Computed example of a mutant assay.
Amino acid sequence: MEFRPCIDLHDGKVKQIVGSTLGYSNQSVVENFTSSFDSSYYAQMFAQDHITGGHVIMLGPGNEDAALAALAAFPQGLQIGGGITAANAKKYIDAGASHVIVTSYIFHDGQLDLERLKNLNELIGKEHLVIDLSCRMKDGKWFVVTDKWTKFSHFEVNAASIQYIENFCDELLIHAVDVEGKKGGMQENLVRDLAAWTSIPTTYAGGVRSLEDLEMFNQLASGKLHVTIGSALSIFGGDLPYTDVVKYCKKAG
């Protein structure tokens, strides 16, 4: 298990928000935390602690400069997502991202667009691609949600679909949409499912809020999954000491 930190960018600032409140014109975005430090501060912190594989997520427009600053501060140490397409993916790889992260670009009109996915593979290489299967439960099954998590796709996340999509990427990132940013505990059944279904590096994000949660997560996943913690972390205004998480995950290996 590895700790995979995050740098979420909104309006050019490092923030922690409730992701499921994005994308709606009739409601405000719920912000848990706005940092007084810029993106490069956090990137340098993760570099100093030798924590690779964290992700920079651009939540809407106006975040590119901050994203590029983070990549410059930790070359090859961070992944980047949010608005990634075939038109800009190579730019971010060239700017120092180890991987680009995609969801909505390859899941549009409710379907997996295999042509777009294969095009990305040819453009930047499978080894530089992370697919984000942010999902939500419907009728007892997990489905990918797109467009800032406002739309259900027809793509069910299960053992067969993960086995298939792993052929096109280097890693998977899974946001448990209903608990992400809420510091209310993880979706344990999703953690168990992902541990059983995945065979490539996979990072789970959503609801982990304490060292006890972290230990439970590692047990549920049998050490197979990596973990992201955002709003609960002390560096993002939470109560869970960042240094404790780093120590625990390095010890857990």
Score class of each variant (00 low, 15 high):
R4M: 03
R4A: 06
C6T: 13
C6V: 12
D11Y: 05
G12Q: 07
G12F: 03
V14N: 03
I17M: 08
L22A: 09
L22P: 02
L22Y: 00
L22N: 06
Y24W: 12
S25P: 10
N26M: 08
V29E: 06
E31A: 11
T34Y: 03
F37S: 15
F37K: 15
F37R: 15
Y41W: 09
Y42L: 12
Q48D: 10
H50L: 11
H50F: 05
I51C: 08
I51A: 09
T52R: 14
G53T: 06
G53F: 01
G53E: 02
G53C: 07
G53Q: 01
I57P: 01
M58I: 10
P61F: 04
D65Q: 15
A66C: 11
L68P: 03
A69G: 03
A70K: 10
Q76D: 12
G77E: 09
L78W: 00
I80E: 00
G81E: 06
G82D: 05
A89Y: 02
A89H: 02
A89V: 11
Y92I: 13
I93Y: 00
I93F: 04
I93H: 06
D94S: 15
A95N: 08
S104M: 05
H108T: 14
Q111C: 09
L112R: 04
L112N: 01
D113N: 15
E115H: 13
R116M: 01
L120E: 07
N121K: 08
L123I: 14
E127F: 04
V130I: 13
I131Q: 03
D132R: 11
S134L: 09
S134P: 04
R136H: 11
M137Y: 01
K138W: 00
G140H: 14
K148C: 07
W149G: 08
T150W: 02
S153M: 10
E156A: 14
A159V: 12
A160C: 09
Y164R: 15
E166I: 13
L172S: 05
L172K: 10
L173A: 05
L173D: 00
V177I: 12
V177F: 00
V177R: 00
D178T: 13
E180H: 03
K182Y: 02
K183A: 08
M186T: 06
E188W: 05
V191F: 04
V191M: 12
R192T: 11
R192F: 00
S199F: 03
I200W: 04
P201V: 14
P201T: 12
P201I: 13
T203M: 14
Y204N: 08
V208N: 05
L214Y: 03
E215P: 02
M216H: 13
A221K: 02
L225D: 04
H226W: 09
I229L: 12
I229Y: 04
F236N: 06
Y242V: 12
Y248V: 06
C249E: 03
G253M: 10
